[in-house]
């Protein structure tokens, strides 16, 4: 049993290190994109009259930035005992809140294209399912743990039993499935409404909605499907 425990601890430490590397790679990508789009941000949003779109834009832009900066800063702090609980939960909470402006943007796109409040509300509700799922997972199943070994550092880890773990896979299915459904609804609305009006040039509003909407749908479909498949497979 002791050998099995040691193997489990090493596997856990290894998965934390892998996640941190992936997280840092994601942060670098985001930071790079932030820097190259900063001049466009200044021109399009700083100088323009503030609207609802401005609020949504800044929420999207700076919620993600604050998550990464906090995660980066906490990487330099050694948390012992259970001292990581409040800061880690705080970062995870903001990370979950990222989904709110994303859901707002999806709902606005749905409303702008269909002029149907019910449809727009459905897209919004489906898009915020990950918020509910993440909050339940974070505050019900994730508990502080001190991993013994070389680091002996405080970490937050899932403490669910194998039976509950199967339930957590259903959570992931619900969360990613609803996001895929919301994106699918949006792309259907976009294509149904705009394909007949695609004659506009490369710089038209309709062209941007079609091009960026389709790109967004394809990228997120691939990522959400990957997330879903890896979770079910594991």
């Amino acid at each position: 049993a002791r050998a099995a425990e040691i193997v489990a601890i090493i596997a856990e430490e290894d998965s934390i290190v892998s996640y941190n590397y992936c997280s840092m790679a994601g942060f670098v990508l985001y930071l790079y994109d932030y820097l190259i789009t900063f001049p466009a941000e200044a021109i399009c949003f700083w100088k323009a009259r503030p609207t609802g779109a401005t609020v949504l834009f800044f929420l999207t832009r700076y919620t993600t930035m604050s998550v990464f900066l906090l995660e980066f800063a906490f990487g330099f702090v050694t948390f012992t005992g259970t001292s990581c609980v409040i800061p880690t939960r705080f970062v995870n909470f903001i990370e979950t809140m990222q989904y709110l402006p994303w859901a707002g943007f999806s709902a606005l796109r749905a409303y702008a294209l269909s002029r149907n409040r019910l449809l727009s509300m459905m897209v919004f509700v489906l898009s915020i399912v990950p918020v509910a799922v993440n909050l339940v997972e974070e505050f019900v199943f994730v508990k502080p743990a001190v991993l013994p070994g070389t680091s002996s550092m405080c970490t937050l880890d899932g403490t669910e039993s194998p039976q509950v773990s199967i339930g957590c896979v259903s959570f992931t299915i619900a969360s990613r499935g609803s996001l895929i459904a919301a994106d699918a609804m949006l792309i259907v609305i976009t294509w149904a409404k705009l394909t007949r009006r695609r004659g506009g040039d490369g710089g038209s509003f309709v062209h941007v909605l079609l091009r960026d909407g389709t790109l967004y749908f394809i990228c997120l479909l691939v990522l959400n499907s990957l997330h879903l498949s890896f979770n079910i497979a594991s």
């Binding site: 998965s15 994601g26 399009c44 509003f205 997120l220 959400n224 990957l226």
Partner: peptide, 26 residues
């Protein structure tokens, strides 16, 4: 869960670029 480490920043990048492009042509 490592996919999330990429999907969240990528989603944020796609949405901000989408909003910037819309604002630029509006």
């Amino acid at each position: 869960s490592n996919v999330i480490a990429f999907s969240e920043p990528l989603t944020a990048i796609l949405i901000t670029r989408f909003m910037l492009n819309l604002q630029a042509v509006n």
